[in-house]
C-alpha cells in the first residue's frame, strides 16, 4: 500500500486535537485545584500562584479523613476484586469445561439477571445485611459484591475459546479436574482474568450507592461518598474539591496505564466472541 506523508501527518494532527479536547476537563480540573479560592470563578484558567498546599489541605482538613477514605476505597476494591476473580473463574470453569445436565439453563439464568435493574436488589440485600449484622462494616461492602454474573460470563467466554484438546490431553496424562483448571485453563485465560480484575476494581472503586446505604461512621467512608460529603460540607471551595477529585482519579489512571495492554487484548478477545 502506498502511504502518503501528508495523510499520515493529518491523521496525527486530528488525533492529537481530539485527545486534547477530551482532556480539557481534566486540564481544567488540575489547574483549578492549584488556584487560590478567590481566583476559582475567573475566566482565566492559569493560576496566578500555584497553591500546592491545596493538596496538603485536603489531607489535613478537620473531619475530612481523606487519607483514610483513600485507603478504604483501595482496600475494599482490592478485596472484592480478589474474591470475585476467584469465584467467577471457578464458576466459569464449571460452566465451560465440564458438561452437565442443567449447565446451560443455569447459565441462562445468570445472564437474565443482568437485565434486571440492580437497584431493586438493594432493599432485600440490606435486610440480609442486617440479619448478618454487617451494617457499617467493611465486610458488608465486600461480601455482596464478590459474586457477579458479569464476571462469570466474561471469563466463561474466554474459557469457551480454549480448544477442547488441551484438557483432553491433560486428562490422558492423569490430571484431575482441579489440576486441569489450575494448571492449564486458568493460565490460558489470563487476558480475561486481567480484564475482569480491572473492571471489578474500577467498578468497586467507583461504587456509590451501596456504600452510602451501608456506612454510618465517617472513617469508614469510601472515596465517592467522601467526595459527596466534601461537596456538601465544603462545596464552595471548588479548588479543594478539584484537588480531592484529582487525587481520586489518579489511581484509576495509573491502573489503566499499567494494565492497558492486557485490558485492550482482553476486551477484544472477550467482546468479539461474546
Amino acid at each position: 500500500m502506498k502511504r502518503s506523508k501528508s495523510q499520515f501527518v493529518l491523521n496525527n494532527l486530528v488525533l492529537t486535537l481530539i485527545s486534547l479536547l477530551l482532556c480539557l476537563p481534566f486540564i481544567w480540573m488540575i489547574l483549578t485545584s492549584l488556584k487560590p479560592l478567590e481566583d476559582v470563578g475567573k475566566a482565566e484558567w492559569w493560576p496566578k500562584i500555584f497553591l500546592w498546599s491545596n493538596y496538603k489541605t485536603i489531607f489535613t482538613t478537620e473531619h475530612i479523613h481523606y487519607g483514610r477514605w483513600y485507603f478504604n476505597s483501595l482496600f475494599i476494591a482490592f478485596c472484592v476484586t480478589f474474591l470475585q476473580v476467584i469465584t467467577s473463574s471457578l464458576a466459569a470453569f464449571g460452566f465451560s469445561r465440564i458438561k452437565w445436565k442443567w449447565r446451560d439453563r443455569i447459565f441462562l439464568l445468570y445472564l437474565a439477571t443482568m437485565m434486571v435493574p440492580a437497584l431493586i436488589l438493594m432493599i432485600p440485600n440490606f435486610q440480609i445485611m442486617i440479619e448478618m449484622g454487617l451494617i457499617d462494616s467493611y465486610l458488608g461492602l465486600i461480601i455482596p459484591a464478590s459474586f457477579s454474573a458479569f464476571g462469570t460470563f466474561l471469563i466463561r467466554q474466554f474459557m469457551m475459546s480454549i480448544p477442547k484438546s488441551f484438557d483432553e490431553a491433560a486428562e490422558i496424562d492423569g490430571a484431575n479436574s482441579w489440576q486441569v483448571f489450575w494448571q492449564i485453563i486458568l493460565p490460558l485465560s489470563r487476558p480475561g482474568l486481567i480484564t475482569l480484575t480491572i473492571f471489578t476494581f474500577m467498578g468497586n472503586y467507583n461504587s456509590f450507592f451501596w456504600p452510602i446505604v451501608m456506612l454510618k461512621s465517617e472513617h469508614k467512608y469510601t472515596l465517592p461518598i467522601g467526595l459527596l460529603f466534601f461537596e456538601s460540607s465544603q462545596g464552595q471551595q471548588t479548588n479543594l474539591l478539584m484537588a480531592a477529585i484529582t487525587m481520586s482519579v489518579i489511581p484509576m489512571i495509573l491502573v489503566f496505564v499499567c494494565l492497558q495492554k492486557h485490558l485492550v487484548k482482553g476486551i477484544q478477545l472477550g467482546g468479539v466472541k461474546g
Binding site: 476467584i86 469465584t87 467467577s88 471457578l90 464458576a91 470453569f93 464449571g94 460452566f95 465440564i98 458438561k99 452437565w100 449447565r103 443455569i106 461480601i143 455482596p144 464478590s146 459474586f147 462469570t152 479436574s177 483448571f181
Partner: peptide
C-alpha cells in the same frame, strides 16, 4: 463436579 466448581459463586 460442575456444581462443586460453581458452589462458591452460586452460594453468594
Amino acid at each position: 463436579l460442575g456444581l462443586a466448581f460453581l458452589s462458591p459463586n452460586i452460594l453468594g
